[in-house]
Amino acid sequence: MSVAQEAVRHAAPADRARQRAAVARWVRLALLLIFVVVFLIPVYVLLVTSFKPLSEADPGQAWNLPKVWTTEAWSIAWEKLEPGIVNSVLLAVPGSLISAVLGSMNGYVLSKWRFPGADVVFTLFLFGMFIPYQGVMIPLVQLMVNLGVYGGIPGLTLAHVVYGIPICTLIFRNYYVTIPDELIEASRVDGAGMLRTFWSIILPVSGPAFAVVIIWQFTSMWNDFLFAVFLTAPTSWPTTVMLNNIAGAQTVPYSQQMAAAILASVPTMVVYVLLGRFFMRGLMAGALKG
């Protein structure tokens, strides 16, 4: 048997394996593309319906592209939704910043400046992350009334900040655990106290964790419906409640409902597109801890 023949005999199975791998790759790609189409069906309907004039915005022709493209539904939806969007901004921007500051302090202490019982405190915090908020809602309304903040944005912000403490603490703690203890020790030996160490050693490297927490809290405050519906009066309704009222009204045409739904989602979508990397890290923090 010649050398060449020998080579062919060996190459054949390897070729077959390579072919099989190539087929498998195409099958996987095809399946993933099918899922992309399925995942985007709702987006397609939202977009095309929102650009239709009143005459075309009936459920019977929702799969069709608009015959006449118009942004008239968008401007009406914006008018209806605007007060809610303003309220949501007033809620989510300060709220997520306060959450981040609190979470950063807690995470620092629970990882680097620990006190006896710190682990128990942390575990008790974590349960707070999982409680269904229905379980506190009835007395929370009462408490907010007693504190004099029921019905307005400050009360709603307070609720979001407090119930956000567990997840924010968790994210910061897990981030700070990766900072070497020697850095903290060295700072202590130099005579720096807790706050000074926090300020000069920890905060300068905290950027990514702040990004993760701010994005997480902003998204959950923006998208929340439960707290809003229990704790706010009509003048303070955030976007979600307003949107639900617009969408629930039989008289509002489909095109406006769908335009309003997109408008309500724009801020979180922008955050997601621009800062998806940090968004992902926040998601993972909720699951893979320790």
Partner: peptide, 10 residues
């Protein structure tokens, strides 16, 4: 990244 309230519409 989107709320159920928004996606519920569609």
């Amino acid at each position: 990244a989107v709320s159920f309230i928004a996606t519920g519409v569609v």
